[in-house]
Design a protein around this nucleic acid. Structure first.
Lengths: 190, 190
DNA sequence: ATTTATAAAATGAACGTTCATTCATCAACT
DNA sequence: AGTTGATGAATGAACGTTCATTTTATAAAT
């Protein structure tokens, strides 16, 4: 019965996600995380080395889930624009449907709360997108610019839209999604 | 001698900026902030109500400085594209030259560490840019889409490039700046 | 089947530390 | 003498973590 690791492990990860989202890392005490997970504080230390380890593990897990969603239905056989479209919409869907996870990732990527090592770990899984862009450049479809620029103008803006969506300042539904994709594509197509 | 408020006030703000940038809000104790500012812990409470107030005041001040830089040399008389170009380059310069301030703003905008009230306060000063976009739409130069989208695809990407720059993963010098501007403009021009 | 022995998982209370904040006192200037 | 700005030391609360112990699961022996 090794199935899917103890459910307390997952409960703790999820409790941490919620606490850190709502109160920030600085105000998410182990005692409250434990209570939210329905577990004793001491139990946390059966599954995690310490608070930092808990956060790191959560980050890596969420990032992995994000990347796995991103490439659903994608194949390297697809034409560049079609492939990009699929990945982009996957990411947009993820940000829209997994608000908590997405907010957590934003917070992690803009604070010194995650170890550099874990950041590297989480970044690995994005390679297919980089490869796709490389192909697009070779075919003269995508501007010959740094992948960081490509990411900054296509994927990263979604984080902002997510934040506005959470604050109920901005819709991200049907029409807007199309407009957003169009803007992303216009910024990088040659 | 009211000149520019006690220099301990500024020293404390600056020390807080550094501490929060390097260690995060959760690990920026008042005692260390005080030491870095060359001041007793008790002195902080002569200038600020408490830690939250200290952070809020710092946020509002930095945000104001950011916005003031953004509109240097800009006038509502300018043609839309030229006006946008000036503002965009101002912002890019700010992000490049005021790394600490910019990183701090990123952190604030992605964590629950700032009071909603102070966020509102800091957002006020961006109005001229919104007005410019409105004019651009009327003239048929800029896509008729939500200002949130416009912001997401022109200004917000700079935050990502800044983060990469700080991690020495990405240059933001001359040529790249032009490419970045081009991508920003392409994404919103009609 | 039931009991007994052993290991594993989980816990509440306690520990030492660190934190934000306060307080009694001080030095400098009026 | 009195006011002001500043302080180092003190304080209580809260934190992350550990520990002695209990509870639950596992297996062996009857």
């Amino acid at each position: 019965m090794k199935e899917k690791i103890s459910d307390k492990y997952s409960a703790l990860l999820h409790a941490t996600l919620t606490m850190v989202n709502n109160r920030g890392f600085h105000d998410a005490p182990m005692s409250k995380i434990a209570k939210l997970a329905g577990v004793s504080p001491a139990t946390i230390y059966l599954y995690f080395e310490n608070k930092q380890d808990l956060i790191n593990k959560l980050y890596v897990e969420v990032k992995a889930s994000f990347c796995s969603h991103a490439f659903q239905g994608y194949s390297t056989e697809l034409p560049v624009k079609k492939g990009f479209e699929i990945i982009w919409y996957n990411i947009a869907d993820y940000k829209l449907n997994k608000l908590e996870e997405s907010m957590f990732l934003s917070q992690c990527d803009n604070t010194p709360m995650i170890d550099g090592e874990s950041i590297q770990e989480g970044l690995k899984h994005l390679q297919p997108l980089l490869d796709l862009w490389e192909r697009g450049k070779k075919e003269g479809i995508i501007k010959p610019i740094s992948p960081y620029l490509l990411y900054a103008y296509t994927v990263y803006p979604l984080s902002f839209l997510l934040a506005m969506h959470v604050k109920s300042l901005c819709e991200v539904g049907g029409k807007y999604r199309l407009e957003a994709f169009q803007a992303a594509w216009d910024s990088i197509k040659v």
